[in-house]
Design a protein around this nucleic acid. Structure first.
Lengths: 258, 258
DNA sequence: GAGTGGATTTCGCAT
DNA sequence: ATGCGAAGTCCACTC
């Protein structure tokens, strides 16, 4: 790791170009302008920012506040550095979609060159997929006697999260949301049920699984004769922790055949 | 701006705590573990990363690749630093939703303290809102004789982007997408039309405005008797550039009353 | 404070 | 490659 305070622009330009060519990451802190043209266009007037260029060719321009970068470029950019009138100009270009950002520094406070090594594994729990897995692994989370038949079943308007039979032999369509379910979720579920009702003779129940429902959703559920089963992603992650495997399809093994 | 290479953990802890208390930004580069618990949970094993803590209490943990941070915290966090067994532990906590990330550094390569000043104005062109404005300012972008009546009109399933009358007095519902329109966009438009047809006696046309449509959308449009008007955000931004005002409502002024 | 929809969304998976 | 939907989405705006 190399860090240089207040490097002259020419030095900075060379250093950055070299670093990028050997796939090192670069951090530049200083006063700059940014322009973007591509899917949209943007202009950012002069100010002090943190710019990160990663070894995969992604770019981030961060202002002093906010979670999200004010300008950026996803991985895969080509770079070009240049000194114009004592200013450092960095241009990052992407094909497909064709777009580019141009960053012009008139002051550079700090330049950092890095070669980070990061083999650490990242695992995330309690996604919607985890909820799906938990239900397949432990169908009684829905209700006593529920038996899943398929997951991600294709019906005309889209894909049903989980599809199964209840203890009375009725078909059950399960729609899963990891957050408070909105009106949209209910309408989606309704669409699936309509679609399935058109193809089978049996009764079809619809169950919305979510930690909560938005206001005004409860009456809608009642009106459409759909059911709600409260279930949090956290709870699902716990249930899953004892039987966690890799793929969703693994959870499907051994489900009762219709 | 202060940058320190390889600071001892105790010094780093104090420095960071002080910096955060006076709302300075901090960058820490080193080898760390990250754990997150809140809306979901995650664990990130040991590796070298760039951590940015901004003055507004947002946190970013960046790996050597990728546009998006592997872990983060939106603005408004409270911080706590600590040294345990020669390791620097940083904890960022947020209420509402209740969540926290914990970052433990066992090696610190670089510590940077910053007080960035950034008053630069940011402007973005060619968003979906720009397309809406362009159409209101120049209705013939849709077709000869089209007259907008309202925008963001509330109908049961949601909001209609632009609503108007064609030269034959038929109602027109316009759905705008700034990217290739998917099946979803068409179904949304269809929902609006159904809803409006239920309340008026006149014919209602549906026009999907987008730079392009996804494969399989064309037949769907035909089947539902909807129309497609190709229009790019870029083109709209150009049209708009000559008449750009501030608010969407400004473009609505002087629209013909029904 | 909750609900709704856009984003230069990004990301991942399936076709 | 394209399409489709989820995301610890974030964010701004409305009610």
């Amino acid at each position: 790791m190399v860090s240089v305070e207040h490097p002259p622009p020419a030095t900075a330009a060379d250093t950055i170009q070299t670093a990028l060519s050997v796939h090192k990451a670069v951090i530049v802190i200083g006063n700059c302008l940014v322009e973007y043209k591509g899917r949209a266009s943007s202009k950012l007037e002069s100010g002090e920012r943190i710019v990160i260029i990663k070894e995969d060719g992604s770019v981030l321009v961060h202002r002093p506040t906010d979670y999200s970068p004010v300008n950026w470029q996803p991985p895969g950019c080509l770079f070009q550095t240049e000194v114009i009138k004592d200013k450092l100009k960095i241009r990052a270009i992407r094909r497909k979609p064709k777009e580019a950002i141009t960053i012009v520094f008139d002051k550079i406070y700090l330049l950092v060159l890095l070669s980070l090594v990061d083999e650490g594994e990242f695992s995330l729990y309690a996604s919607e997929e985890d909820m799906q897995k938990a239900i397949l692994a432990n169908p009684s989370l829905i209700e006593q006697g529920f038996r899943p038949i398929t997951y991600e079943k294709k019906v005309e308007p889209g894909f049903v999260d989980v599809y199964g039979i209840d203890q009375n032999g009725k078909f059950v369509v399960v729609e899963i949301k990891r957050k408070t379910a909105s009106k949209d979720a209910v309408l989606q579920l309704q669409k699936y049920i309509e679609s399935i009702k058109g193809t089978v003779q049996r009764d079809v129940r619809g169950i919305l699984v979510a930690p909560d429902v938005a206001k005004g959703v409860q009456p809608l559920l009642y009106k459409l004769a759909l059911e709600f089963k409260p279930l949090s992603p956290r709870r699902c992650a716990e249930v899953l922790s004892s039987v966690r495997t890799q793929k969703l399809s693994e959870y499907f093994k051994g489900l009762p055949e219709l």
